Amino acid sequence: MPSKNMLPKGQRRRTVKPEYRATRGVEPASPPVIPVLEMDDEAEDRIHAFTAAAEAAGLRLDQYLAQAIPDISRARVQLLIEHGQVRVNGQTAKAKLKLQGGEQVEIEGAPHPPPLHAFAEDIPLTLLHEDKHLAVIDKPAGMTVHAGSGATEDERNHGTLVNALLHHFNKLSQVGGELRPGIVHRLDKQTSGIIVVAKDDSTHRKLSDMFAARELEKTYIALVHGRLPKDNITVNLPIGRDLVRRTRMTTRRSADSEGVRPAVSHIKVLKRIHSPQYGDFTLVEVRIETGRTHQIRVHLQALGHPVVGDTLYGAPHHVGQPLATLSLDRNFLHAARLVFVHPQTKKELRIESPLPKDLEEFLAAIDAD
C-alpha cells in the first residue's frame, strides 16, 4: 500500500526540494495554549460547569481537561469520564469525543481525589542498617515504595513500603507529606535493593540535599541482552517523559525541552555470557550520578541492550529456543551498594545487598548453559 506521504501517482518524479528548502529552519507552529480552569476541590458533591475554550477545538475531551485543570492527570480525567461524571452539552461523554470549542461541560464531584493518608500494615522488612536517625531497607521486587496520589483506601494503597514502615517504626519524617513519610528517594516497583528512610525531618532534609548534590555513591547490578563491546561506558544522555507513551521515559527529546533533565550513568562490564540455548547477555555494574526516573533502564535501552525482563523498554517476555525458554517476571536490576556519609554522625556508611535468589537462579541457569 502506498505511503500517505508519497506524491500522487504521475508526480513521483517531481522534485520536492523547493518545498523542503522553504520550510527548512522554520519552527513549526506552536500548539494553542489552553486556558487554565480554576476549580474548587473542596465540595465533593457539587457540579463544576464551564464553557470549553475556543483553543480546545480539535482536541479529545480527555486531552483538553488534562491540560485545562491544574495538577490533574489524564488517567484521573479518564476515570471521571468512565464513571459518567463528565457531561458535554448535557450528554454523558466519552474520552475520545472531539471538541469544537464552545461546548458546555459539566464535571460532577471533585476533579481531584481526596487526600490519601498512608496507614500501617504488618509486612516483613529486611533491615540492612538502623539507628535513631535513619534506616536502610532491602526492598523486594514487586513492592511499590508508596501509593500514587490518585489511589484510594482500597486501591494501590496496600502492600507498599510505606505501609510496612509505619508498622515497624514509631516515628518517620514528615517532610514528604502524609502519603510518603520517611521516603527520601525511590526505586521502581520491579527493582530490588537498597533504599534509605529518614526517621526525623532534619535527617530527611540533609539526605535530600546530599542526593541533590550527588554526594552518595549508588551502584546497581543489571543483566542486559546482548554483548556490550566495551568494558567501561559512560552514558550522558538527558531524560524526559515520552510524549507518546506516557508510562515511559526517553533519551530522544531535545535537552532544552520542558521536563528533560541531565542524566549520567557509568557502566562497567562484570561478565559476558554466551549461551547457545538462551543467547548473549552481559552482567554489568552501573553507578549513577543522577537519579532520574527509569534512568538505568532508559540508558541501557539507548545503547541497544535492554535490561532482562524489562518489557517496557524492549526486552522480550521470554529468552531461549521455542522448546526451552526462561522468563523473569521482574527487571534484572538490583540496587546493590550505597556509600554515603551519615548526615548526623558524619561517619561513612557502606551498605551492600546481595543479589536476590530469583536473580541468582536466573543467572545460574543461563550461565550453566
Rank of each mutant, 00 (worst) to 15 (best):
T290W: 05
S173T: 03
K132P: 00
Q344V: 15
K94M: 04
I233G: 06
E289W: 01
G182N: 09
D138G: 00
Q301S: 04
V86D: 01
F169C: 06
L187V: 09
A222S: 12
Q301A: 12
A212L: 13
N170M: 07
E55L: 04
R180N: 11
K96L: 00
F50E: 10
S30R: 14
F211V: 08
T160Y: 10
P124Q: 00
G109D: 13
N232A: 11
K132S: 07
D122R: 09
K132E: 12
G159V: 11
A57D: 10
L59Q: 12
E361C: 02
G176Y: 08
D231R: 11
F211I: 06
G150Y: 02
P124I: 00
T251N: 11
S275A: 03
T203P: 01
K17V: 12
V33D: 13
P35M: 12
I123C: 02
A53H: 10
A368R: 13
K189M: 09
H117T: 15
M143W: 12
L127W: 07
Q301T: 04
N5V: 07
V286W: 00
E352I: 04
M1Q: 09
E55A: 15
V197Q: 02
L161K: 11
G304C: 09
Q301P: 00
P316F: 00
L300V: 05
V33Q: 15
T160L: 05
